[in-house]
Structures are given as C-alpha cells and as structure tokens.
C-alpha cells in the first residue's frame, strides 16, 4: 500500500442528489488531474473540517483500484487532490 502526497488543484464534476442516504447526497463523480481523468465508483466518507474559520469538506473517494482524498474549500470554491493511496494490484 503506497501513500502519495499530491496537494494539486483539480477539476471535479459533482452530483447533488435530491433524495437518498444523507451520506451520499453529494458525490464527486469524475476528476481531471493534469491529463488524467478519473471516474469515481465509491464515496467512502465525507466529513467537514475547518481551517481557521474556513469550512473545508473532505471527500474520501475510490475508483475501484485506488483511494483519493479530495478537499473542497467552501469559501474559495476550489477542489484539491490531497493524497492518493495506491491499492494492491
């Protein structure tokens, strides 16, 4: 298992559901990181945290092979790919 720190701004397409389990109402669907496009298959956990008074939502995502930690800054309205955990191939 390999942990890689990234900390890059990324483009993300997000789905906002109108109903369903509260845990999965908001889900990043696809991410463009550099030239790579990654389609997510599972939202592990979303949790809010703060940086000073700035609200940041942390999304732990999976594409079925690797896990990704994404942060959405609710004040700056930006997405950041923080880490990748490479799964075992």
């Amino acid at each position: 298992m390999n942990f890689i720190e990234i900390n890059d701004r990324v483009e993300v397409i997000t789905r906002f559901a109108s109903h369903g389990d509260p845990a999965y109402m908001i889900m990043p669907v696809k991410m463009r990181w550099g030239k790579k496009e990654i389609a997510f298959t599972e939202l592990g956990l979303r949790h809010p945290t703060t940086k000073g008074q700035r609200m940041v939502h942390v999304f732990d995502m999976s594409d079925g092979a690797n896990d990704y930690r994404l942060e959405f800054d609710a004040e700056m309205l930006t997405w950041k790919l923080v880490t990748i955990i490479e799964g075992e191939s």
Partner: peptide, 10 residues
C-alpha cells in the same frame, strides 16, 4: 473502522 469506511482499499 472509520478509516476502512473512508478508504475502501483498507
């Protein structure tokens, strides 16, 4: 358990 929920590979 929370980490395993967050990261399916674990």
């Amino acid at each position: 358990m929370t980490e395993q929920q967050a990261r399916p590979s674990l």
